[in-house]
Design a protein around this nucleic acid. Structure first.
Length: 278
DNA sequence: TCCCAGGCAAGGC
DNA sequence: GCCTTGCATGGG
């Protein structure tokens, strides 16, 4: 099998749990398999399995560096967790999701996926993204790539509504056309956080929360804190100040968690959802 | 049935 | 500026 001829072995299982990494809501392109997970990103795919001792990423050899970067393997999460543990609510949140990592995802793919995430549920988002790739993505032999801006710009809102995007269909049409027409996602890598956020928010369907998701998951701006319904629940317990304003909550959380805010947000999100499930 | 989901945009003040 | 409402769709 040419698609699994190379293996990346991860022995720091304390800092890598593929289930937690994929199911903390930062990506929608994966499938659970009997023995692990199949993961998709851009036009690439890999398979991840893990045991008590190690995790194994199986991929094409030429994609090894891509996946090492994607899973953020160069970052020492021991440092992240040691820095966060003393801060409010982090001891228990980290204990719950200690194998979480923040993926380094593609700007465009993250942009589109998180436009679809607005007021939506994870399984439904995954279904829409799946159909989007199947219909518009390049056939890579057994799976489909994420579609390009140019390809998506050729479809209209009616098409995306048919995929099940609901009222977000208009956003996809407008934003795909904006990017295909020259909105430079790459250039935002050099911008400071506030101006990158402002630029993203000019795109249809990108509000404060979606912009923060794109910054954190698509640009690895680990100080960005997306405030969604789950973080609001967590906030009520962390601060208990009766605050209802999302922007004020975000600022307060940034003060509390500082430059590791994005990591803190992931631990909180996962912890809050686990508590719901149990 | 009603409520909610990783909210956004538009309209009213 | 801040606050409210409508919005597609599906599951509990």
């Amino acid at each position: 099998m040419s698609d699994t001829d190379y293996r990346i072995i991860i022995r720091e299982r304390e800092d890598f749990d593929i289930g937690q990494i994929l199911e903390c809501g930062q990506t929608f392109r994966y499938r659970r398999q009997a023995d692990g997970y199949r993961v998709f990103a851009g036009d690439k795919t890999c398979t991840v399995t893990q045991s008590r001792e190690e995790a194994i990423v199986a991929c094409e050899e030429c994609d090894a560096d891509f996946w090492k970067n994607y899973f953020d393997l160069q970052t020492d999460y021991g440092v992240v967790k040691r820095s966060l543990r003393p801060l409010p609510y982090m001891e228990e949140a980290i204990a719950c999701g200690k194998g979480i990592r923040i993926l380094r995802q593609d700007h465009w793919e993250t942009l589109i996926c998180f436009i679809l995430s607005a007021n939506n549920r994870l399984p439904r988002i995954m279904g829409i993204v799946d159909r989007l790739c199947a219909r518009l993505g390049e056939d890579c032999g057994g799976y489909h790539a994420f579609p390009t801006p140019e390809r998506m710009a050729r479809e209209n809102a009616a098409f995306y509504r048919e995929l099940g995007a609901g009222y977000r269909a208009e956003y996809l049409e407008k934003t795909a056309r904006a990017v295909a027409d020259g909105f430079d996602l790459k250039k935002l890598e050099e911008a400071d956080n506030a101006s990158a956020r402002g630029a993203l928010r000019t795109l249809a369907g990108v509000g404060p929360k979606v912009a923060d998701c794109i910054l954190l998951y698509g640009y690895h701006r680990t100080e960005a804190i997306p405030v969604d319904t789950w973080i609001k629940k967590a906030y009520a317990q962390i601060c208990a100040d009766g605050c209802r304003n999302t922007e004020a909550m975000r600022r307060r959380l940034e003060e509390i968690y500082g430059s590791f805010g994005g990591f803190a947000q992931q631990y909180l999100f996962y912890y809050q959802r686990q508590k719901r499930d149990t």
